[in-house]
Design a protein around this nucleic acid. Structure first.
Lengths: 199, 199
DNA sequence: AACTTTTTCCTAATGTTATTAGTTTTAACT
DNA sequence: AGTTAAAACTAATAACATTAGGAAAAAGTT
């Protein structure tokens, strides 16, 4: 029983976030501005303050959206893993694939392209939650991965490799699909190294 | 036989770059502004245009400075390596150490904290030169590293791991010294994995 | 030491941005 | 149809980069 007013508000909020993402994707995450946003929505900049408390609040909403999509994406992409090698390969692929498919969300969530934007505590908690999930996922593989490293370090090392490969892929050949390009091609190489070391 | 005018100019150029680095270090790379710079130098903002063509030109000069220092730093830090393992360990340590000691240069040179800043061709060529150096360095180890990967991929994988560990160290615990913290501690772990895989 | 010239610095102005205050319009609810 | 709350507007402020044009200063020259 959402009132008409609530429905209108929801609709406008959605429209603002969609437009914000479009601007970030077209012109870079940092190109988002209240003026450009208002221009595309055919309203005056101050009207946006009826929906968000400021530009950073819009970034924060997109940040939260990004991590929610990220959570679903990883869960779905890694769901059929049978071995720890597959688990780690799919995790790395999921990371890079998310960046390729949603460059604006990847940049905002995993890099720091807008220095003035600092995610709110609430938003950070969402991202921390996903990290915890990954930690316990790796912890459940403790007995099958043959290494002296504690499971948190195994997880952190995997995260670091995935992040390194993805960051360099995105800054060199962001348009090449998964598995292609100077760094995109290296996920199997990284996995083979881990496999040889931990089997 | 530098004239007085040339000496004055050199002195002021140096003072501007030093102050720019101080601002970036204190308040973040993106906090650099002509106004703040002029404020600290006790001049009016337009006067800065006698020395640089604009804010982005100042970023470019610091970028170039950063890569020049980076080149010297790596050369010096890795000079005593005896084995390929040591070579790679020192390379990774050099990367993270440079970031810890010069966070403002690391961010500007290896991340993209100021989206409006795009390094000039001249500056990019300097950075490309250092990459080439690293490539040929790794290529010279081709016969001692036991892997099917071509040397460029070995180098890229090492770069990606070093970058991933460093980026995450800097966004989590930038003040902890080399070898400490969640990601700072992982260089030996990464090296052990590579050693087991490629020995 | 006086003169000339170039460099350096300044003031004033333009256009961009985020944001706030206060008011009017719109449209939902009664 | 009337009431009211939401959502839009205009106007204004303050920070910023940058340009134009002129004043001041310091170097180079006689």
């Amino acid at each position: 029983m959402a009132s008409q007013r609530e429905k209108n508000r929801e609709y406008m909020l959605q429209k603002i976030l969609d437009t914000a993402r479009a601007i970030m994707r077209e012109s870079g995450v940092a190109a988002l501005s209240m003026h450009e946003l208002a221009r595309r929505l055919e309203i005056r900049p101050p009207s946006l303050y009826n929906y968000f408390s400021g530009l950073m609040d819009i970034y924060d909403a997109v940040f939260r959206l990004g991590f929610n999509l990220w959570g679903e994406h990883v869960l779905d992409y890694t769901k059929d893993a049978q071995t720890w090698q597959e688990e780690i390969r799919l995790s790395m692929e999921a990371y890079m694939l998310f960046a390729i498919k949603n460059p604006e969300l990847y940049q905002l969530c995993f890099e720091r392209p807008v220095p003035a934007f600092v995610p709110s505590e609430e938003s950070l908690n969402i991202s921390r939650g996903h990290l915890e999930d990954f930690y316990s996922h790796i912890a459940s593989l403790e007995n099958v991965i043959k290494t002296d490293l504690p499971p948190e370090q195994v997880a952190d090392l995997v995260i670091a490799i995935a992040h390194g490969l993805t960051a360099l892929h995105m800054s060199n050949e962001p348009n090449l699909p998964l598995g292609q390009g100077r760094f995109g091609v290296l996920i199997p190489a990284a996995l083979s190294v881990l496999d040889k070391a931990w089997s």
